[in-house]
Design a binder for these strands. Sequence first.
DNA 1: CGAGAAACCTGACAGCGTTAGTTTTAGGAG
DNA 2: CTCCTAAAACTAACGCTGTCAGGTTTCTCG
Lengths: 218, 218
Amino acid sequence: MPRPTTPLLSQAGIRAAALEIIDRDGLDGLSMRKLATALGVSAPALYFHYPTKEQLLDDVAGEIMEKVDVSAFASGWREGLLSWARSYRAALAEHPNIVPFLARGPGQRDASLRRADAIHGGLVGAGWPAREATMIGASTKYLVVGAAMGSFSRGFVDDVQVYLNRYPALVDAHRLREHADAVDRDSFEFALTMFVDGLAARLAQARQASVAPSRDRT
Amino acid sequence: MPRPTTPLLSQAGIRAAALEIIDRDGLDGLSMRKLATALGVSAPALYFHYPTKEQLLDDVAGEIMEKVDVSAFASGWREGLLSWARSYRAALAEHPNIVPFLARGPGQRDASLRRADAIHGGLVGAGWPAREATMIGASTKYLVVGAAMGSFSRGFVDDVQVYLNRYPALVDAHRLREHADAVDRDSFEFALTMFVDGLAARLAQARQASVAPSRDRT
DNA sequence: CGAGAAACCTGACAGCGTTAGTTTTAGGAG
DNA sequence: CTCCTAAAACTAACGCTGTCAGGTTTCTCG
C-alpha cells in the first residue's frame, strides 16, 4: 500500500521522533529502522525526506540550537555573554545525548554563522578588539561544550572505601554522585563567573592604559 | 597456521595500531577488521587480547592521559592548575580524533582518580575550600575538553571569513588550517588566563574578608 | 484522461562488533 | 621423551547497521 492518501512522514515529524529516541536510548540507540518503526513506516521511507542519517542529526542539532539566545548583547557585553552561555548550556543539558554528535560534523550551518556574527558584533560594539572578541566567543563555547560533555561529577564511583584508602583528598567526592547535576550546574556557573570577572578586569585595565598610555611601573 | 611460534599480538601493539588508525582515519575509521588487517591478523584474534572494542578504546584513551601532568601543584595552585590544563590540552590536541570518545566514558579508571585526587589535594592545600576546589577542577576540565573538541572547525568560523577577505589569494586549506589551529590555541590560553585571573581575585578577596570580616563598604 | 512525479513498499548489499568452534603450537608434568 | 592442557591464532557465521534499487500505488497537473 505505497503512496498513502495523506503523507505519513514529514521532516519535522521525523526530527521529533528521532530526538525522542535519542533522549530515551542515547545516540547509539537511534537506528534508522527503529526510527522508522516508531513512525509506523519502513526504514528506506525516511530517505525520501532525509538523504542521510547525518543530515537528519544535523537538523535535529540545529533545532536544539534554535533555543540559544544571542539577543542580550543590547544590554551590554556582560549580559549578552552570560545570557548566551546560559541558554546555550541549557539547550545542551536538555538533550545531553546529542552532544557527542556535535563533536563531529562541520556544522557550520547558516544559523550557526548568524549567531557567531551576533556575538562577535555584540562584543566589538562594546569595545572589545576584534581579535579578542573572537577569542572570547571561542572561550565561552569551550566552557559550554566542555560542561555539556564533561559531566565531571559522573566520573566518580560510589564506593567510599576506594577513596578512604587510596585517594585521601577525595573522601567527600563520593557524595558528588548524588547531586551530580547540581554540581555540574554550579561548576559551570562558577567557571562562567570567574571567566567574565577576568574579562571585566582586563577590559578595565585596557581602558585605563589607553587613557594614560605607556607608563609602566608607576 | 594458528598459534604461531612467537605471539603476533600484544595489548601495547594493538593499542599503538589502533591509535594510528584513529589519528589517520578518524574514530569512525577504526574497525576491528581494519585494525586486524593492519596487524596482519584476523579480526577475532583481537578479542583474545581485548574483550571489546570499547575496552580497547578505553585503554588507548588512558595511555594518552598518561602524559597529563599534575605534579606542579607543589609550586602553587596557580602553577599546578596551569600546568595541568596545558598538558591536558596538549595531550588531547595531539590526538583530536579520540576526543569524541571521551565524551562517553566516565573515565573512572584508577589513573584518572589518582589525577583527580592530586588536583583536589593541591587546591585545598593552597587554601581553597573543598567545594570550590571541586568546581575549579570541573571548570578547568570543561575548558580543556571544550577546547579539544575543536571549536574552530565546529563553530566560530567568522574569523575564517575575515581571513579569506583579507587574503583572497590564499584560499589554501593548509594555511587556513594553520590559522585555525593558532586561533584555537590562543583562545584556549586566553580563556585559561581569564579564568585563573578571576580565581586569583576571588581568593585574594576571600582572604581579605577573613582578616577583616563583615565589613562591607569601607 | 493520461503522464509523471510523489511517497511509500520489499529485498538486498556491504560492513560492523562479536561469538562459536576448530586448529596448531608452546610449555610444563610424569 | 611423551602427553596434556592452555594459548593464540584461524574460518564461519549471526544479527545489526546505513543505504541503494526497483516495484507499486496514488496524487497532481496539463
